[in-house]
């Protein structure tokens, strides 16, 4: 069993943090995990992405050509990665940031206005967590409680209000019915 999730967006959208939450969830379940960020000059405002792989055996390559799931947080990422999702895999799209439908029919598609949902919650920076919730709900990689624990772990040392907001964002993602 191996799952690969690629999260792609602009620098500053919380791509790397969303990946960390996923990595923590896998760690808590005793799985092997590799969190691999893009760390080039693109971190400074351009496109950013990270790949999180979890498996029950030693992980080989830290990056894969066709991940089992991809979260796209902007239009360039949708254009670049739609074709890359493995057949029967998951593509999660922030429709607030994209201007076209997903064309592929051989994958599970989850479309939600994540930025809008986050703004309604009062903070656009929660978009990444809304999307993560939607992916985990659709894919069943983890239970909601496991992801909440991972989120708390990832936010250790942050103020309680911020943690609470993130938990709500996660729930919104989980509950979103597309």
């Amino acid at each position: 069993m191996q799952n690969e999730t690629l999260i792609a967006g602009f620098g500053g959208q919380g791509v790397l943090f969303a990946g960390k939450v996923l990595a923590h969830a896998a760690l808590e379940l005793g799985l092997e995990v590799t969190w691999f960020p893009s760390y080039g000059p693109e971190m400074r405002g351009g496109t950013a992405n990270c790949t999180v792989i979890f498996s029950d055996e030693e992980i080989g390559s830290p990056q894969v050509l066709n991940p089992t799931s991809i979260i796209v947080m902007n239009q360039p990422s949708l254009d670049k990665y739609e074709t890359m999702v493995r057949k029967d895999g998951y593509l999660v799209v922030d429709t607030s940031m994209t201007n076209r439908e997903v064309e592929r029919k051989d994958i599970h598609t989850v479309c939600l206005p994540a930025t809008q949902i986050a703004e309604e919650l009062g903070d656009k920076r929660l978009t990444n967590i809304v999307l993560l919730g939607a992916l985990i709900h659709a894919s069943n990689y983890f239970g909601q409680a496991e992801l909440e624990n991972a989120l708390k772990k990832s936010l250790e040392g942050k103020n309680t209000e911020l943690v609470a907001m993130n938990i709500i964002a996660l729930q919104r993602g989980f509950e979103y019915n597309n």
């Binding site: 960390k20 092997e32 995990v33 960020p37 830290p62």
Partner: peptide, 9 residues
Amino acid sequence: GSIGQMMEP
């Protein structure tokens, strides 16, 4: 660089 930058348990 990949080992330097990645995270693992």
